[in-house]
Nucleic acid binder design. Structure first.
Lengths: 249, 249
DNA sequence: TTCCTTCGTTGCGTACTGTGCAACGGCGAT
DNA sequence: ATCGCCGTTGCACAGTACGCAACGAAGGAA
């Protein structure tokens, strides 16, 4: 839509991966040095990027403040945080995630790290796959039918593991089951040897505003064991929903 | 430099203060609705902004990720964090700040909240006044003379309290004293009834890479009492400097 | 030292792209 | 059902962002 702005945003995204020189930026944008420089200077003037003494560009301090403000605007995060911590403790130190639906994507809003040494690749702010994660299923399952179909048709059913749902038909079945039982499962569909269960947080009108999931490596609990965590998960999401509904007080 | 980008950045800054409608954005930018809309759509496409069901615009989830990445790129923060926490505990639960110099400004990089009920206005990512804070003095004092003078001439010596340094001459004296004694003071120059001491963190070449300060309300300790904290402060900054110098291992 | 390479910076003409106007349409309120 | 508000679309104009080419500074090699 706006060419120069779009290019500038790409710069920011790329700088998120690490420092870059002017030439590197220009090359990856496929524009002339001059163009890259003008954008970088504009970004620098408002502290969105920073230049070190070696002329390398980094993300600037304004993004600290905006990142903090963005998180603060997702009030659900503050409400949920203590419940997430407690859920993690109750389930034996498993990884717990909170995700929200935004603009056709599920985004991780908060995370409690597992106390086990098994690392999972996820990070606050990054999107979660809609078809291969428990939170993705929960969030899509409750969309109004029209928007839900639009989202489904936009999904790239790329397989992450051999168990990843491979097409829209299978996905629709899973969504229906999710709505019926009130929770969703991810049986090693995103990462091999990791099973998850997820459940929705609802506002006072019953609409889903976020999703919570617990992720457990196979070596710690088999799939049936993870399913046994569902009651604790639902207790947590219901508590968050209650707090959220009464937040104005 | 780049008009449309500059306008888009203003949008992000304003959204950091709270949600806005399309018309509000257009009005504050003093541009036509169409223009504001195009910028917002471009920002939305890359998840820098988010639209809720009431057509209000908010900061988007991409800023979570970029904010986190920006913080992670300031490696000094991770090195310093444990020392800041310890310093806060050793000084009786005072507020402790870490700030870096960036592009003509001092920026708070990390903060340990005071355990006392007295609130201070500061926030990670926001700039600190160069002439009225201990960290500002420490960071400017050690700049190379040429850049230092350029920065000083750019300072607006606006008074925050009756004790705020009022002109460049007085500021230069204070900077000289800061260099001699290796630490700086803020005697209620920024906020009435709050005294601070600050000291530099240096890399292996001796260059200042950051500054640490302790802030204490008058009601808890008088000015002389705060000065008595300097040895503990210096112990902390020296420990951070040592860790920073040896970080490659 | 001196030369050479590399990389960031500047001036400028072109045309592309961002801009504002005006008209449309959807939605909520009265 | 009608009105009015606010977001959206098409379009013509010119302002602005673009790339070229030449300059200048910094670092390395000979």
């Amino acid at each position: 839509m706006s060419q120069s702005l779009s290019r500038a945003l790409q710069i920011l995204i790329e700088l998120g991966e690490g420092e870059r020189s002017l030439d590197q930026v220009a090359a990856s944008l496929e524009v002339h040095k001059t163009t890259a420089m003008r954008l970088l200077h504009t970004l620098e003037a408002d502290r969105f990027v920073r230049r070190d003494d070696r002329q390398r560009y980094h993300l600037g301090s304004r993004l600290f403040a905006l990142g903090g403000a963005a998180l603060a605007q997702h009030a659900i995060r503050d409400v949920a945080q203590p419940h997430l911590t407690r859920l993690a403790a109750e389930t034996g130190g498993q990884a717990v995630h909170l995700a929200g639906y935004e603009n056709g994507a599920a985004i991780y809003l908060a995370k409690v790290e597992s106390t086990h040494a098994v690392r999972m690749y996820s990070r606050v702010g990054l999107p979660a796959a809609l078809h291969a994660t428990a939170v993705g299923k929960v969030l899509v399952a409750d969309l109004p039918p029209g928007e839900r179909e639009a989202v489904i048709s936009g999904i790239d059913f790329r397989p992450f593991t051999s168990r990843t749902i491979a097409d829209a038909a299978g996905y629709r079945e899973v969504l229906a089951r999710t709505r019926e039982q009130g929770w969703a499962e991810d049986a090693a569909e995103h990462e091999d040897f990791i099973n998850c269960v997820g459940a929705p947080v609802r506002d006072e009108t019953g609409r889903v505003v976020a999703a919570v999931s617990v992720s457990v490596p196979d070596v710690i609990l088999p799939r049936e064991g993870v399913r046994a965590l569902v009651p604790q998960l639902l207790a947590a999401t219901e508590a968050i929903s209650a707090d959220w509904a009464g937040r104005s007080s």
